[in-house]
Design a protein around this nucleic acid. Structure first.
Lengths: 274, 274
DNA sequence: GATTCGCCTGAATCTAAGC
DNA sequence: CGCTTAGATTCAGGCGAAT
């Protein structure tokens, strides 16, 4: 039972063309945002971003399985006192390309970058856009259930009358059944807001992507031996997590140093699994 | 020192035409979302939403002072398995109309509506879009500062050498001065993510708008005797808060019952203030 | 061992100076 | 005068060392 990890060096668009149609279960990636990371990725201007990204998302649409999911981590920065609109335009353009814009998760970065400005607060959230090929896709919700907060215990102690009335009026058998489930497992389904701190350890690469983020989506949208793709691999956080979780993975990056580094880091994990 | 509260019954676009140019300091509103509230507001279809809203935002652009701010609470719902894109299109259209899209705050609704779906989690956030007429606008950041985390107290007990070095190396006199500020106030500036529960004890009006929401923006963007406008008043939460905070306010609603109700509720507040 | 404490830094953004 | 770069401002989580 071997876990494959393939790393391709080169431009995403070109390397993606080498992958087979309908071969990937989940794409999780954080591409270079507009006007950032000039040194490594060239820094795409916000006016050219949609034009730059569409050929890539076209390839992603090709390689993703019909039941698969594409998670895109992105956030527009401030340009000349305004939020840039390229992400809005990208969503609209990707829908025309054939994607379904299924959901937008919020990543609340609890430790956001400090700073003070006369007419703006610190930016402490990013978008996690979910795209799909079909309305029906694989989703394993039970895998990401979270422990209930104290509010649940308090509420369970004594159900108010309106609680009962309101819920039983909507679905005949819903509420009572759920309650028993809650007591059994003490867990609840999460929402579309994720609270995670950015990675803050002193490694060489800038991995502002905490492991919990890909981990959560890999749990939610794949099962063991599925295939995860990150076309902007960077320091390889997504691949590392996929590997640990017994998923096949494919990573692409244009920076040779990143590719080498990820290969280095994967070796010990593979040995450990043997 | 009398606080004015004006309530207009009728269609927003028409009633806004009665207001003077550059007369409002802050607009906070939660218009009917697309495909919702059919019974009271007619239920605007998501394909027609931009077309419906632009004449209203045009009037708002007219009545807002150059230093004023427009906060728009909105969230697209799911239509046929996808998030509707009308909010994205609205942002792009309003920029063409002359608005600056300055910021997007996230309202994290800690107690979101319960429910379970096969390929979707509960939606627990909404957009709070900030629009302005100019890059420079009034913002009173100190009014909404929040208590610092515990780490601050510990840190202030004894400043480490590196703390001083890091900051003094960059700015000659910066850090010592700041530290004293911190001691004085023990507070920090907030971020663009707001954590508020939805109002549970709401009465007749369908839109659950907690008082803390308009309160926060009124503190942040206005001072005493400024004017606050809500062109979709509903149950009048914004006006009530504005009144309590000694701001003039203007409310518009097409539903006579809401206008009557808000007038009723305002009377005791006015008496109290006298 | 459990807890505290200090060090470190992260997709920030504005203003002003430089070219 | 427009574009680019430097300087200034400022929180919170995580990790390792110390108690």
């Amino acid at each position: 039972m071997e876990i494959h990890t393939d790393i391709y060096l080169g431009d995403s668009k070109d390397q993606l063309a080498r992958l087979a149609v309908d071969s990937v279960d989940l794409i999780v990636t954080s591409p270079p945002y507009a006007d950032q990371r000039k040194d490594t990725y060239g820094g795409i201007h916000h006016d050219k971003y949609v034009e730059w990204f569409l050929p890539i998302s076209g390839q992603l649409l090709r390689v993703l399985k019909p039941t698969g999911t594409f998670i895109l981590n992105i956030k527009e920065k401030v340009v000349d006192g305004e939020r840039s609109t390229y992400v809005m335009e990208l969503i609209i353009a990707m829908r025309k390309q054939g994607w379904l814009w299924t959901e937008e998760f919020i990543w609340h970065k609890k430790n956001s970058y400090p700073g003070k400005w006369p007419n703006r607060f610190r930016d402490s959230w990013e978008r996690l856009l979910q795209f799909n090929k079909n309305r029906h896709f694989n989703m394993y919700q039970e895998e990401v259930m979270v422990p209930m907060g104290d509010w649940a215990k308090a509420r369970l102690k004594k159900l108010s009358d309106t609680d009962k009335i309101r819920d039983t009026s909507k679905v005949g058998s819903g509420f009572g059944k759920n309650i028993s489930n809650w007591i059994d497992r003490g867990k609840a389904y999460p929402t579309n807001v994720l609270h995670l701190a950015t990675e803050c350890n002193n490694k060489n690469h800038s991995a502002a992507f905490p492991e919990e983020l890909p981990e959560w989506f890999i749990k939610l949208f794949t099962k063991r031996l599925d295939t995860v793709l990150d076309p902007f691999m960077g320091s390889g956080t997504t691949l590392m997590v996929a590997n640990k979780m017994q998923r096949h993975s494919i990573g692409i990056d244009i920076v040779p140093e990143y590719c080498d580094m990820v290969k280095q880091q994967l070796r010990p994990i593979e040995l450990y699994l043997l």
